[in-house]
Design a protein around this nucleic acid. Sequence first.
DNA 1: ATAGGGTTAG
Length: 467
Amino acid sequence: MPEPNVVSYSSLMSGYVTQGKPQVSLWIFREMLKTTVLPNEFTFATAVNACSILAELRIGTQVHSLVEVFGFRFNLVVCSSLVDMYGKCNQVDLARRVFDTMVDKNLVSWTSMIVAYAQNGRGNEALEIFREFNFLAWVNPNHFMLASVINACSSSGKLVLGKIAHGAAIRHGHDSNDVVASALVDMYAKCGCIVYANWVFRRVRNPCVIPYTSMIVAAAKHGLGKLSIELFEEMIDKRIKPNDVSFVAILHGCSHSGLIDEGLKYLNSMSRKHGMVPEAKHYTCIVDMLGRTGRLDEAYRLAKSIEVNPDEGASLWGTLLSASRLHGRVDIAVEASKKLIESNQQVDGAYVTLSNAYVLAGEWEHASDLRMKMKQTGVYKEPGCSWIEIKDSTYVFYAGKVLFERGTEVLRTLKELEREMKEKGYKGRSQGLVFADGEEEAMEEIDDLWVDFSIEKIRPDRSIEAV
DNA sequence: ATAGGGTTAG
């Protein structure tokens, strides 16, 4: 073109984004700035979007400055894209600052802000924004917004609010939408309601790969490895192509149900049947699978043979470390912790887990040395916790601490369950429960129970329909 | 020619 104008440049940039080449889009943007053609709102929205995809905070901030310079700071679309960009770069507070300066906001801007909070582990604030939206709202939330709100509920374990959002989805006809359904399946599973998860899943008419994957993960997290496998096979039968996440899901399912041969079979099938190359995250699942059943030498050998970037390395060695702790393999725990500490990733967790591995192996002195070293070097591990909502109360659990009302009641029930499990052949450990050696009979009995468990037979109550 | 969503190993 002899004289490309702003539309030509913006179209070209947008085309590169669509083709999955955001870096080229930004290059075109830079070229454009060297000419006399002035960028407009379309150009900026596209450039900011390219930065979101790349999670490029540095360039994103520069583009933001240009937005101010060229006078688009009050443009609805440009500002929505900035909110999204800061969210994707994990700068939620900057996203909020842009959001607060916006004079008009629409569903997209509100959704972008909710997503920024939800995807950065700040579910409560996401729900706070949603509450404000509902207060000011002149339109109903659409499926984009509901999916994001449900996502915020799952990450913060808000089952009651999740059910309310589900109710809203039903009222506005979004409950069998693929995206909303995936979020609901995930939310119910993470809040402990596998039966509801299955119920929502089965209402989707033609589920694509993502609802299937959500449900495979849901089954996996509840120890229903065989159900994970059934779902995966059903998906293949329907000619739905599994993606990299689906394989993580099925390997996770096999790992958590001790289905090692099946897990290895699925790993091999990736290249043999599905034309995919297993990635570091898939091998990490296998390391977990081998480690979990005590095949630590194999797991270690595999871990050493995988090429990883720093983030993948942290997952890989973290996985091996906790498996070593579980089985009291101090030797491997030491090697795995070294990798984590050297790479400056999850250092606090590495110290604590290694120290616990020493404790399990009876090496008290090593354990206390390590705790001392933590104090000296100022490494502090924030204790993890779990929580559950019952009616309108939230109960928070820390290891070794009971801080809420009715705590003694919970402890009494727990002791009773432990006693019953011991009777049936389980042997308690400091973390998790494993079978006692040589109690095959009890194992078979429990295995039967497990196979019999069919979630089709259990009906959910009608409370969702009531909502 | 422009902005938003769901699944991911320890």
